[in-house]
Amino acid sequence: MMTYDIQPLILTFKLATVTTAILLIIAIPFAWWLANTKIRFKPVVESLVSMPLVLPPSVLGFYLLLAFSPEHWFGSWLDKELGIRLAFSFAGLVIASVIFSFPFIVHPVQAAFQNLPKSLTDAAKVLGKSNVQIFFRVLLPNIKPALISGTVLAFAHTVGEFGVVMMIGGNLPNSTRVASIAIYDEVESLHYDVANFYAGVLVLSSFAILMVVYMVNRKARK
């Protein structure tokens, strides 16, 4: 009987939770801004946001690795001024995951903001409501389905991340050895049963998460 180390699974869900929390704080206001802005270089911004969708994760990981390395000005500045090393660390993984999952939350939320009738905002304005009140009491509650699916997609996507973690995280137990990496590692060492355990947990949890989203959204539409 083999004893399974559940640390990689815990690490995976910790990474996904932290990443999603950060995304909620920055991606929703950003999506709102993107839905309303009239700046000329909006296509440039939109392309940048969507890049992680089309690029191989290894490309993003490669450039982040270069930027984070102490040889690079950014990495060395972080190291010297703040004493932070992002390459091969959990903090580095979080930053990479935020960038990588950004479009998964921005896209549905931006589309939902754009589909809301403009007159809702106008109506709230003439009723004397501030922009903050309008955002939290009128706009956000009316895009709930998109918020839920965006959040869950970003979470699930972070759970499923492999290439980026491989490039910048490596395989350090308790710090960067997430489940997807552990599976690869165990298969390489021919520990198929351990790999199977990690893989099985990911399959089941992903299915459960997605099903909850679809059920909640179906209820919200009714």
């Binding site: 009738p117 809702l120 106008d122 109506a123 304005k125 004397g128 009128v138 509650p141 009316n142 709930k144």
Partner: peptide
Amino acid sequence: LEPQLRRVGYMFQDYALFPN
């Protein structure tokens, strides 16, 4: 002057009721 400070009642063609 911002619309918030004008104290206007406005009825929109599409009513603009808040669905939530």
